[in-house]
């Protein structure tokens, strides 16, 4: 330990005898155990900030689609986020299918984004910086491609929710969902 003569205690400490290697091992073991203990202690604190049991449990919802007419759209909340559900018209589906994949910034076929072509389900959060795009309500701007338009920074999405123009890097994401009945879906 203290080898320099200036330190207080230099005169009180007798350095002559000791099993040095045994001591070194002890210091190492104590240090390592403290480190492990500290890390293990940190985890409950960190984990307490993760979603709690009641938050996780509500992670799936059921949505009845029977009242949504062709051409209409509804927005539901799932995990605190807006989920866009649009009952697409034949024209919109055709338009989404007509686009050449190679011209898309984030190429993805329309059929890969839907389970039933008339129902488009996706998370309504712009992949640029998290605003909610316009296009759900009848009077909303729908952008240059007839889908959605994010007014924050001008991203245009088409009728399949794919990014076509603007700063957003990716298509609107599709949440995990399944059709429980013909007009009843479970999201999550």
């Amino acid at each position: 330990m203290s080898k320099s003569a200036q330190k207080p205690g230099a005169m009180t400490v007798d350095e002559s005898d000791d099993g040095d290697s045994r001591r070194e091992f002890l210091y190492l073991a104590a240090g390592a155990a403290t480190a492990v203990g500290t890390l293990a202690t940190a985890w409950p604190f960190i984990h307490s900030m993760n979603p709690a049991g009641d938050v996780l449990a509500l992670a799936s919802i059921e949505v009845d689609l029977s009242a949504v007419a062709v051409g209409q759209a509804i927005t539901v909340t799932w995990r605190g986020k807006p989920v866009f559900i649009r009952h697409r018209t034949e024209d919109e589906i055709a338009e989404a299918n007509a686009v050449s994949l190679r011209s898309l910034p984030d190429p993805e076929a329309d059929e890969d984004r839907v389970q039933q072509p008339e129902w488009l389900v996706m998370i309504g959060i712009c992949t640029h910086l998290g605003c909610v795009p316009k296009g759900q309500a009848p009077g909303d701007p729908k952008g240059d491609y007839g889908g959605w338009f994010c007014v924050c920074h001008g991203s245009h999405y088409d009728t399949a929710g794919r990014i076509r123009k603007g700063p957003a890097p990716a298509n609107l994401p599709v949440p995990p969902y399944q059709f429980v009945e013909d007009t009843l879906i479970r999201i999550g």
């Binding site: 985890w43 409950p44 604190f45 984990h47 307490s48 993760n50 709690a52 049991g53 009641d54 938050v55």
Partner: peptide
């Protein structure tokens, strides 16, 4: 009670 039951390690804290 929610801390005690639902929050991860809430009972411990």
């Amino acid at each position: 009670e929610r801390i005690m039951r639902e929050v991860n390690y809430g009972w411990l804290l």
